[in-house]
Design a protein around this nucleic acid. Structure first.
Lengths: 296, 296
DNA sequence: TAAAAAATGCAACATTTGTTTTATATGATA
DNA sequence: TATCATATAAAACAAATGTTGCATTTTTTA
């Protein structure tokens, strides 16, 4: 929002002085302003993961009479926004270069959004479901993604480690990438991610996995990708982008969906695992609760 | 409202068959659609000059279960208008225990697409352009993303290495993550990526960078993220998803856009650099186009 | 460590909400 | 006009809302 929003600014500026629960409530309001006006306080509190009373306390903390002041403010913001949209588009006066930058950015982002939206085609959804089934059945999941695909492979692996110990990330220094497969067998599955140009090493390892009897699931970019012939299930994602580079956002989206599907197979187990991970990381002081903030 | 609105059309088409009081209520709703979602039924009735019961009767007359259906519809319309169908799937019930895989996948993907599309708001585009400018000016770019954000940081770094030697990826074993900053100074910039929950180490390093005089550019998830206070420019991306986990797809999209903008600053240099990288990797036999024959 | 203070969860509270019921008014038909 | 069906207003109702006080937990201070 470009318009001055005094309440929003007040919440941000007082954020540091809030207790954890107040912060959680405040954060949710900052990030879902329209919901404040559209749902009841109790429902908002539920969605924000706090007690109803916390919302009242937040209002008082902000110096307001009660929660209704917060709601009234956000309702007013919605009433004003009716014509604010056009106004906002106009008021952006930019330099020529920035204009060009904004245009390129917009084109790229819209392209990415469209590509991810296109993954909702029935054919893709079927393959996603089949892949999730296969991954759920596997004893062990080996995740392989080299070079540009490393980010996707690692992210999948990272999320899955929050759920349990089922995945092995095939990566390592000194040419030890494939060592994880030493004890892999027919009960295991390789999740291989590779896009054009295909890293030779990825294909070799996928081939090796196949020879060892592993199931192979591929995330790749084309029906004629070499991985398609090697894989039991291949999920295709476009990598075209409006810039010089290939995009991996759709591939990342696919891997996130796979994680979501796997977690959804047993929601309770997933929740329990996540809580366990939370506690572990908490005891390690991995995350910041108190914030080293110095400047506004 | 430009979109087709079935309820509105239904009210109009049944208008002639209504009693005077029903008409008065219906007319007010047609002419003040946003008020329906923003005030209580009794207040709406008062403003419309009818009895509260008339509103309920109108709902029944339209074939709905009750007034709440009318309100829910108008709230949805506001969500639609404000977010461009973004947070829609987001808010809907997630209580269905056994959601079909296809349904969950579709929801997740649509949500991701919408979140990326939302990054095209003018405010975001401005920040992207400013960030690209700052990164282009920098002597050196240090890229920091720990834990879940590693994928984004690494991807940015990887793409940038194709363009040149300007970036340093802050990562390493044995607690050497921050060592890259040893010789960093005021002419350099830190690109820090962190989302809630914020890795303590990321914040500490960002703080250190700031103290050493580096510019700080952040990719983070909220106006109240601790990185916002530390950063010269903060680019915000939503991380909410329909599943248990946060999504990094929008953050990845942002980093890809930054790469695109940087490459676009000097297209010829970028092309030349990419060709050089291509030749190098070709001579190393990094890539394949067909299924490889395994070396023994 | 113990004591004090702050933060939080819980449950009871008075209101307010949307709905339903009942009584009254309205207007058409014969 | 008398009769009837419909439309409206008023009041009663259960369900929900936002708030508050209190007990418990957590954090800070001495």
């Amino acid at each position: 929002m470009l318009q001055a929003d005094p309440l929003r600014e007040r919440i941000v500026s007082l954020f540091d002085g809030m207790s954890p629960q107040l912060r959680q409530a405040a954060r949710y309001i900052i990030e879902h302003p329209q919901e404040v006006a559209l749902v009841s306080m109790r429902e908002l509190a539920r969605n924000a993961g706090v007690q109803p009373s916390t919302m009242t306390r937040l209002a008082k903390f902000l110096g307001l009479a009660g929660y209704d002041d917060i709601r009234a403010h956000h309702a007013e913001a919605i009433r004003f926004r009716v014509d604010g949209f056009a106004a906002r588009a106009m008021q952006t006066e930019e330099s020529e270069e920035d204009m060009a930058a904004a245009q390129l950015s917009r084109r790229m982002l819209q392209g990415l959004a469209a590509q991810i939206a296109r993954l909702t085609e029935p054919a893709s959804l079927e393959r996603l479901a089949a892949a999730a089934d296969r991954l759920a059945q596997a004893r062990r999941i080996f995740v392989l993604g080299l070079r540009s695909c490393h980010s996707v492979a690692w992210h999948f692996h990272y999320v899955m480690t929050l759920l349990g110990e089922k995945t092995t990330h095939l990566d390592g220094p000194a040419d030890t990438v494939g060592d994880g497969l030493i004890r892999a067998g027919a009960e295991d599955v390789l999740l291989a991610i590779s896009i054009n140009p295909y890293a030779l090493h990825s294909l070799e390892l996928a081939q090796l996995a196949r020879e060892k009897g592993l199931g192979v699931i591929a995330i790749t970019d084309s029906e004629v990708s070499p991985l398609v012939g090697l894989a039991d299930i291949a999920i295709l994602c476009s990598t075209e982008s409006q810039s010089f580079f290939h995009t991996l956002a759709p591939a990342l989206a696919i891997s996130e969906v796979l994680c979501g599907l796997l977690a959804n197979k047993d929601r309770n187990a997933a929740l329990a695992a996540l809580q366990r991970a939370d506690r572990h990381l908490l005891s390690l002081n991995t995350y910041a609760t108190a914030i080293p903030r110095r400047r506004i």
